[in-house]
Every structure is written in C-alpha cells, then in structure tokens.
Nucleic acid binder design. Structure first.
Lengths: 224, 224
DNA sequence: GAACGAAGATAGTATTACTATCATTAGAGA
DNA sequence: TCTCTAATGATAGTAATACTATCTTCGTTC
C-alpha cells in the first residue's frame, strides 16, 4: 500500500482541478520544472504545452494564466510546509526547540517527498526562493488576497507567530518576526548563491549558516 | 542659485545617458510615474512613449529594455539613499544613534527632493517597495551582477554593515543583518498595507511601528 | 446507444518586445 | 555661413506572447 499526501487547494486558484486528471498533474509537474529551468518571466503556456505534448488551449482550461499557476504552486508549497511544521513540532514540548525546528525546515533544502508524485519539492523550494514574492508583489494583491489565494502563507505565518508567543508571550511583534523569518530564510539563500556580498555566508555556501543567523536573530529578539 | 544633486550612474545601465538630454529625463520622470501607476508587469515602452509624446524606438535608444530601466531607477534610489545615510550620519558619533537614523531613513516615506528635478523620490520609494526585488530575482542575476548593476545596493549594505560592526565588533552577521533590515524595511511596509495579517501593524498603518520593530530586531541581535 | 465531459486540433486576434530604415532638425566646428 | 553629425521623429515590420473561439474526437456512464 502506498501512502498518498493530498493537499486541499482553494478552488479559486484554478479553473479545473489539476489534481483530478493526468493532464492536470502533468501541468503541475512540468510547470514546476519549466519555471525552475527558464525563470518565471520566460515561462509560457505554449512552451509548457509543447513540453507536455498538449496544446496551449488545454492548459488554459486549468489555469487562467501563468501568474495563477505560480500562485497555485506557491500555495501548495506553503500548505505542505505548514503540514511539515505540524508533523515535526507536535511531539516537541519546548517552544524554543519547536522554533528551532521551524527555522531548520524553512531554511534547509528539502528532498523530494515521494508521497506527492506530481510535485518535486526540492525544485519547488528553489522556485519559491526565486519567484515566491512575485506572487504578491503585484497591483492585484488586494484582489487576490480577497479570494484568499495567500491563505496558506498567512496560516504558516500565524502558526510560527503562535510558537513565538509560546516562547515569550510578551513579545510585541510575533507576526512581523514570523514573516521576517520566512522571507529571510529564502532571501538569504538567494543572496548567498547569487549576491554573496549581501551576506556573511559567502565562502562555503552552507545553509546551516543561514540557520544559525536566523536563530541568533530570532532568539535574541524574543528573549525575555 | 540652485543646488543640483547629480548621481553618477554605471554606464552599463543604459545605452545613452538619460541625464544628458531632455528626452532622457522625461523617460526617467514619466517612467517612474507609469511603473508606479500600473505596476511593472503592465508597464511597456509603448505606453511610456505615448505618455511622453515620443516613439517606442526613441526609448529603446536609451534603455535596452524595461528591466534595465527598472534596474536603473533602483540603482539611482540606492545611491541616493546611501548619500542620505552619509549626510545624516556623518555628524553623529554614537554608532547606535547612527543605526537608528539609518533605520528611520530606510523605513520612513521620503519626500520629493527638489534638487533632482527629474526624479520624484516619494513615488520612487513606493516602486522600490513593490518592484525592487524584481531587479535581481531573475535568471540573469549573475550576469547583471558581473556588470556591477547592483553596486549601489551592495554599497549601502556594506555601509550599514560597517555601522553594525561599530556597534558591536564581535557581531557575526553584519552583512546579512544589513540586507535583512533593508529588505524588511520595505517588505513590512508592503505587508502592512496589502497583507496586514503578516504584520503586527495592521490597525493604524503607522510606519513608525515598523521602525520600532526593526530597532528591536537589530539592537537585541547585536547587543554585546 | 445517447449523452456528456475532457482533451485534441486548429485558427485567429490584440498586444508586446523588439529591430530597421529614412527623413528632419538643432547645434558644433571649420 | 556652410557642413557635418548626433539626436530625434516617423513609419514599418517581425516574432513571440497572451489569450479566445470553435469544432472534432474519444472514452465513460447511465
């Protein structure tokens, strides 16, 4: 018997649910690969269609446009991360250890989770680093936000915020610190690899140093 | 007599120096306004040309493409900020006060500086918040970085990093903390306005709260 | 075997992101 | 004053992008 991991996605993210057909799953799988390979700007539905062996129109039946597809896979990623955070912290009592675990999950490269056949999480992680903030840095944020497209990100942020408050109930900025950790886990990784002079991890490009930086940042801030 | 503020720009940013002609200045002035109005994705050289009363080809004589124009105005912004940081900190002895000043400069809305007739800094600040990271979150980062297109950002980061070290010479992550402050000064502002549940500044949308958050973050981290 | 929905095949449109060419004009230097 | 040049204007054209529409086919279900 195989274990399957299903993530319930907001219906406004797609026109037709990609999880419920072979073509849909191919769109996600190859979409992730193509965005990673060429970058989101150069990514088009036409190229994706050619990759899969279907037509442009076929893809438009699933997603309104490529921006929606990016939001979809990002939302999937955040949901999956929140699930991982839950799994890896629910047997931990000490909130400090919990928070350390979370930082590690955020800042460390993931391996492909075999229970999700049509998503390669390690590539997805790279996409989120480079393209993730493009999901909301648009003129349509508020509109998209009303449709709850960013809910998984917000849920994760709230979850981490609550762990921060467990550590120190008097800390005044749990949510801002939470979004700072999330963003910086990715940005410092990007900087380390492509603009190393913006970081202190230049030489050996070791993700564990990002973890140490974030731990230092977080725990000195929330210290009672 | 009028004071003029001239910022020396990297020549690789443009094909023809926009500061040296009326048309060039118009491209910058109206470009900033149009990007702010419609967002970078919807911004085209054709629309800009119509706005100015010139032709598409005319703009292509100055900038290779719209991404280069975005890098140009971003580089201008970072240079200008570094200049402001220098002006506002060079009479301050105490590095802690210096750093506080820097945080305020980063996180507080600016007013239009009348010495730069063809740049509206308050609009530019908004653009940097929403579009700034798109300058480097591309597949061409390394290439663009080799041409030193991000030098002004890196200079500012280094400058702030050195002030951090003045505060505490033993602090291990001056550059990463510096890039964190810079990015978060903008991201927390964006979140406050468009995705408030990712912050703790939801109710009254007061920039001073971002300053307080960043001060708390920075000074607890570097405390000896 | 009728009915339906998903997918394939094909076509078409407006816009985007350029490149090329040629004419006009304003200013600099001889 | 003449001339040369560089900047701009005017116009055209192309390949790619971002869609929308329509019609057919195929497999399933009732």
């Amino acid at each position: 018997m195989e274990l399957q991991l299903q993530i319930k996605m907001n219906e406004k993210l797609f026109l037709r649910n990609p999880e419920q057909s072979e073509l849909g799953k191919k769109i996600i799988l190859h979409g992730i690969q193509l965005i990673n390979k060429n970058g989101f700007e150069a990514f088009t539905f036409k190229k994706l269609a050619q990759d899969i062996g279907t037509t442009e129109a076929g893809i438009y039946r699933y997603f309104e446009n490529k921006h929606r597809l990016l939001i979809y896979i990002s939302a999937w990623y955040w949901s999956w991360l929140e699930y991982r955070v839950a799994v890896h912290t629910n047997n931990i009592k000490d909130p400090v250890l919990k928070l350390k675990k979370v930082i590690k999950l955020l800042a460390t490269a993931v391996e492909d989770d075999n229970r999700t056949s049509y998503v390669d999480e390690s590539i997805l992680h790279q996409i989120i680093i480079t393209e993730g903030s493009k999901t909301y840095l648009t003129k349509k944020v508020s509109e998209d936000n009303k449709d709850h497209l960013f809910q998984p990100y917000k849920n994760l942020c709230a979850k981490i915020g609550s762990i921060i408050l467990e550590c120190n109930p008097k800390y005044k900025y749990p949510k801002s610190l939470s979004s700072t950790i999330i963003e910086m886990a990715h940005f410092q990784n990007f900087f380390m690899n492509y603009l190393p002079s913006l970081t202190d991890f230049g030489k050996n490009k070791d993700e564990r140093k990002i973890v140490l930086f974030l731990e230092n940042l977080v725990f000195s801030s929330i210290k009672k």
